[in-house]
Design a protein around this nucleic acid. Structure first.
Lengths: 190, 190
DNA sequence: CCTTGGGGAATGAACGTTCATTCCTTGTCA
DNA sequence: TGACAAGGAATGAACGTTCATTCCCCAAGG
């Protein structure tokens, strides 16, 4: 196994275990075992558990940003851009339950409180979406509400539903996702 | 200090510390100290930390249910009932930040996963709100969406915003609360 | 009225466990 | 053979919980 392979394996193991059992159900020894690596070896790649978690989160963030930016309709109407973001996030999270659970855990923990401002998605990501909302307000398409309210009206339902889906309290199919995204649009649109 | 006073004091201390520092920033010794009680004494009133937390949560749940039910416009139109629920929950959580944070912590932990179905508020409470949504659909006032989507469209933004307010990323005044509740209504209404 | 003793509440030091982290040993390349 | 990665037992801190002891209150007896 290559050097970088072990690093990857450890992050993957951390992702899986935290997603399944939460931070406190994921001791280093267990992460090591899952990664097929000894406990001490982890410290060759990560300074501490803290940093392991944070780096793992960082990787996920990058993936999500990339996913949202892919095929982003930069020149389309605001509404289309908005629905694109919602759909992308739904797709990503539903296809990657462990990743979703990890991010949720992260945000509801001492780790996440520090970067709460960055919301459910990363800084760059937020910038993209912030622009979307600001442009929408400039075009008088959106309600007159502060930015955080737009975020709440969008990501609040989105995350709740992904969680419900992953916990199997509901089944989200393509059509239901689309209709939910529309409902969110109804909430933010003027 | 009366017997029941100590019980109360311990629960209050648990509430405060968990609200401030999370479960894992609230060892029993610290809870005991805050309650002005010795560590061992807690076990005279609560079988374990687990049960202490759960009972504390139960108390909060009761309070919230009572708050939402107070002055509930049983005979008013659906829209009014919906806005009442939103406003009550906003009021309660914004006036009780520690309680809100405790409940959030609770729901994002092994404790809360078991009762996830009960959503952000209790069983009885959910029944009230479930009725609200079902009646709204019967009257063709609401979109044709599954119940969990209504819950997500309502409580998702609500909780997100309360959190933002408590963390001081936004200031929710009465007017903004009202307009946000209206926006949620726009999301669920047909 | 004072003394005494019983019983339950409270105490907090001590225990056993769990965990992140360290460190010395072992194996494996060049 | 030297250098360095990997291993995993050892370490020590932190935690929930227990329990032998102390404290306090009050009733009964003198």
């Amino acid at each position: 196994m290559e050097r970088s392979d072990k690093r990857e394996a450890v992050m993957q193991a951390a992702l899986e275990l935290v997603g399944e059992n939460g931070f406190h159900g994921s001791p280093m020894a267990m992460i090591a075992a899952r990664a097929g690596v000894a406990a001490g070896t982890i410290y060759r790649y990560f300074e501490s558990k803290d940093l392991l978690i944070r780096e793992t989160y960082g990787c996920l963030e990058k993936q999500i940003i990339a996913s949202v930016k892919a095929e982003y309709p930069h020149d389309g109407p605001i509404r289309e851009q908005y629905l694109h973001v919602c759909q992308r996030l739904f797709s990503y999270f539903l296809a990657s339950p462990l990743e979703f659970r990890f991010i949720e855990q992260f945000h509801n923990s001492p780790y996440g409180i520090a970067c709460r401002r960055d919301k459910m998605i990363g800084k760059k990501e937020k910038d993209l979406i912030t622009e979307l909302f600001e442009e929408g307000q400039a075009q008088q398409l959106l309600k007159e509400l502060p930015l955080p309210v737009f975020f709440a009206l969008t990501f609040g339902p989105l995350c709740d539903l992904c969680r419900d889906h992953i916990l199997q309290f509901i089944v989200l199919d393509k059509q239901l996702i689309a209709r939910t995204a529309e409902a969110c649009w109804d909430a933010v649109k003027r």
